[in-house]
């Protein structure tokens, strides 16, 4: 299992150069059955990452480009009348894929956004009275562009909370970029990648994540972190119980990726910026971001013992 995960990471890293940590976080997010929000400028490899993940993990892949005129039906699917059979036949939308890339999610109206977010939370969609289950596994990678905010609908806190992690890819290192420029186009590598896991293997691994041992000491640490976000005056919003659950789940997945069957404080610390960053608000700036500095404060001041 360890080797499988390692080769998954290696395969993705072949395509996405120099982003080892982000790839690992994305995989941990997936293993913890969470959804991922990628926040970065255009052209940083968001799509490549999601596509590669889908490929390596043997998942079906769909991409939805969110625009302001996108309707919920465009995501979920619609029933079309079949004249021959005289019946409405349901045409599933792009949401019915195992890995869905929701590109530039903040460009769509809240109505369309919530259609996606509901699906993410429930694992099923209800269309025209019929409840249809989404495939299993189901993993959404949403992206948003932080810089061009004109004409966008920022995700409210309640919906940000649905994402297990928020990750930024960032610029590649010089050496990675050089290799990128020298090598062949990354997208061309994709079709050649062989799936490493099948559905059964992925399901098995996902089922093992909750079994990773989290000792009292680690749970206490998570509690101390959550408590600090709730009691310290710098925090406008504390971490919700869903947030602390997410933190522990992500730490478990991270520990598993590290080949350990127990969680240590370093695992919690490794996932903390991605898990908590988008859930925290600075008291001085409650509307904007600022979670980053708060997370650094947590890492610095809350003792793991």
């Amino acid at each position: 299992m360890r080797t499988q995960l390692d080769s998954c990471l290696a395969a993705v890293n072949q395509v996405l150069l120099g982003k080892d940590r982000q790839v690992r976080l994305a995989l941990a997010c997936l293993l913890a059955r969470g959804h991922l929000l990628l926040e970065d400028l255009p052209g940083m490899g968001k799509t490549t990452l999601s596509h590669t993940l889908a490929r390596v993990l043997g998942l079906s892949y769909q991409r939805i480009q969110f625009t302001s005129d996108l309707l919920p039906g465009d995501i979920l699917g619609t029933s079309v009348f079949n004249r021959e059979s005289g019946q409405f036949i349901f045409h599933p939308g792009p949401i019915f894929a195992e890995l869905v890339l929701a590109d530039e999610i903040n460009r769509a109206t809240p109505k369309s956004q919530s259609a996606l977010l509901e699906a993410m939370e429930e694992g099923q969609v209800t269309i025209e009275g019929a409840t249809r289950p989404l495939p299993e596994p189901f993993f959404v990678i949403a992206t948003q562009n932080p810089s061009c905010q004109g004409g966008t609908f920022a995700l409210p806190e309640s919906q940000l909370d649905r994402f297990l992690m928020r990750v930024s890819l960032g610029y590649p290192a010089r050496s990675a970029e050089k290799a990128l420029l020298q090598g062949e186009a990354r997208r061309d590598l994709l079709p050649r990648l062989e799936p490493i896991l099948d559905h059964a293997a992925l399901a098995r691994i996902q089922a093992e994540v909750p079994a990773v041992h989290a000792s009292d000491a680690v749970i206490d640490y998570v509690l101390r972190l959550a408590e600090a976000t709730r009691t310290q005056p710098a925090f406008a919003l504390g971490l919700s119980p869903r947030g602390s659950l997410a933190l522990l789940a992500a730490a478990r997945a991270w520990a598993m990726l590290a080949g350990r069957d127990y969680v240590i404080p370093e695992d919690v610390q490794a996932v903390l910026p991605s898990v908590a960053g988008h859930r925290l608000r600075d008291q001085a700036d409650p509307a904007g971001h600022g979670g980053g500095a708060l997370v650094q404060w947590l890492l610095r001041e809350v003792t793991p013992f």
Partner: peptide, 23 residues
């Protein structure tokens, strides 16, 4: 662990508040 910390502190190594044991 505290003894370990004291031992290393004698050599100028102090654990940061938020630092985990392996780090």
């Amino acid at each position: 662990y505290q003894r370990f910390e004291r031992l290393l502190a004698h050599h100028g190594l102090r654990r940061e508040r938020g630092e985990g044991p392996l780090a």
